[in-house]
Design a binder for these strands. Structure first.
Lengths: 120, 120
DNA sequence: CGGGATCCGACTAGATACTG
DNA sequence: CAGTATCTAGTCGGATCCCG
């Protein structure tokens, strides 16, 4: 197994160890809405209230939490405008943009799966 | 947003609705070990005890549960040899194999991320 | 507007013991 | 060997209230 040799040295991320890049990726974007958030931000910079509208079935708390983690992980940039009322814009970092191809594949694959499943 | 038009009709999967293919994909392989299980099975058919060795930090219960779900979702095939002691082999279905490109990308991306992160 | 702090119920996953 | 059953601890996410 080639990838086991390539990953012989354990990868560390936020105090946790991972044997495989897949686990790292899932730890970063496997959260319930993280991938979707990145997907939306890939298309346009959004304010917090915009994200709230897009994820209307998600609480502010969860949205904030997920965004904070994405920010900590360097995938999302948070820009605060020091004004009243506050204005905060979220956008992808360069690193965040690199995951876009995966998101595209996931989107296509999931759609195909759902269609095939509905036929059967 | 083009993909919103393409996914205007909600996708249904196991009694849940998804707006986007990404969410479907994550529901199927976003579990803590599911993607890794698929990744290992993509390389060789494995017996349950083989998987236990690979995922030594996972309980039998969880491993079984994840495998059952993957089987229910049509991604993994479970072959039982009716003999004593029992022998059960797990392998990917054709549908399960179609997700391999995503797993490869995820593996590469995660590795790169971990390396870049360790530099910084 | 964009959060943070706290409380609490629901679900998840681990430990352990048992089985065909 | 390959599970299942039960119980419990821990985690997650929702609701609510407060703040700059």
């Amino acid at each position: 197994m080639q990838q086991n040799q390539a990953t012989a040295e354990l990868m560390t991320l936020r105090d946790r160890e991972y044997k495989c890049g897949i686990d790292v990726t899932l730890a970063l974007v496997g959260g319930k809405w993280k991938a979707s958030i990145l997907w939306h931000l890939a298309q346009e910079t959004m304010r917090f209230s915009d994200l709230q509208r897009q994820f209307s079935d998600t609480t502010r708390k969860m949205l904030t939490q997920q965004l904070r983690e994405l920010e900590t992980d360097g995938l999302v940039h948070r820009k605060v405008y020091p004004q009243v009322p506050p204005k905060v814009e979220y956008s992808l970092t360069d690193q965040g943009r690199t995951i876009f191809p995966i998101l595209e594949l996931m989107c296509d694959w999931g759609r195909n799966y759902a269609q095939a499943g509905n036929q059967a």
